[in-house]
Design a binder for these strands. Structure first.
Lengths: 211, 211
DNA sequence: GTCTATACTACGATAGAC
DNA sequence: GTCTATCGTAGTATAGAC
């Protein structure tokens, strides 16, 4: 219980202020425990930071949802791959829409822009699996091998989802609606699905023109 | 000169650690001045934070590049709007690819996820202009009025660009190339342009089906 | 305008009570 | 395993020299 409270608070504090900026005193107080328990359980501030990264990584396990490169259930036909792509992007929207994701998204974005050892830990887990799965799904869906184009496409697809969290204040202003509105989230999912289809189709026709 | 050195350092420190996390001592030391000069010039830490937001906003002035809703040069035909859209997204990629954008992008993303008064100041400037211009350009390019769909589309287009900065560490891993590589940036721009065309075309055909 | 000096609060780490 | 107490360092703010 103490562990979980500490980690939850740490996500929020480290997310907001970074490793240097956050204070163990503040984290311990918010988690209703003594500061020295951080030293005891995690060896110090840095230890808690890395443990927080692992904790965040573990919370993303449901996003790839078993779709893993090389696994037996991995989609083999363009149609199946496209469906899996839609499903995975949809789960990502759900994940990033949730109130819970607010704290850890700041943590991750900081690590994305200025990576430390913590990013290695996050990427080594479900996040890396998810990105590699997306690459292979795009390849299968567009009938191409693992070309640079498919990887760039994945970043643009991911970006569509990411913007809803990483540019949230802009979304609130643009939509003049709360970004937690389920109807808005449903509309966003539909639009991302339509965009994904359009992008895949344009990749396919590009390929056909080249031949 | 002291002002500029202070503001540049402040972007980086506030970006990394937030308002609470960053220290005036650290900022002053890195800007090679006395800490008390922050009090003198900006009235304190918060004053410097807001001044930093204004400074960031002022640095984005070249992105809308005069394309402003209601101005006389605003594109009126679908073709012109599409070209302007490509140009503006291209300038955004350039901006976000630059080394300089690293510090202020963290500042902005933090404000996007947990907005304070500083975000109002940033959005009131070129950033808000840019987003509203994108909305109108999508409307003109897709032959639709200011529907919710156009605003959601703008977020997805923006997300494609944003990902290159806000998910940089993921990009580095996916591409196994430096994200400052000009060739990679050129490829990304081409892909975003192609995706934008595909997305606009799908918006247009959606509209035609409805009729 | 820019600096030093100082008052007071908060920081991380650690030792030791229980 | 969780707490309090304490040490040395670093934080903001302010007053005042120049």
């Amino acid at each position: 219980m103490v562990h979980e409270r500490l980690l939850e608070t740490a996500i929020s504090e480290f997310g907001a202020k970074g490793l240097d900026g956050a204070s163990t005193r503040g984290i311990a107080a918010a988690a209703r425990t003594a500061m020295s328990s951080i030293t005891y359980h995690y060896g110090g501030k840095e230890g808690l930071y890395l443990a927080t990264a692992d904790y965040i990584a573990s919370q993303m396990e449901d996003v790839p949802a078993g779709i893993r490169v090389g696994s037996e259930g991995f989609p083999q036909t363009p149609e199946a791959a496209r469906a899996a792509l839609h499903a995975m992007l949809g789960r990502m929207v759900d994940k990033l829409s949730s109130q819970r994701s607010e704290s850890w998204s700041l943590f991750i974005v900081r690590e994305q822009i200025r990576p430390t050892e913590a990013f290695d830990r996050i990427y080594a887990g479900p996040m890396g699996q998810m990105m590699e799965a997306l690459v292979q799904l795009v390849c299968v869906a567009a009938g191409m091998c693992d070309a640079p184009a498919s990887r760039i496409t994945v970043i643009t697809l991911f970006g569509q989802v990411l913007a809803f969290r990483a540019a949230r204040a802009t979304c609130e202003r643009l939509f003049e609606r709360s970004t937690t509105d389920p109807e808005l989230i449903a509309d966003l999912k539909k639009r991302i699905a339509a965009n994904t289809d359009a992008i895949l189709d344009s990749l396919i026709s590009e390929r056909q023109e080249q031949q």
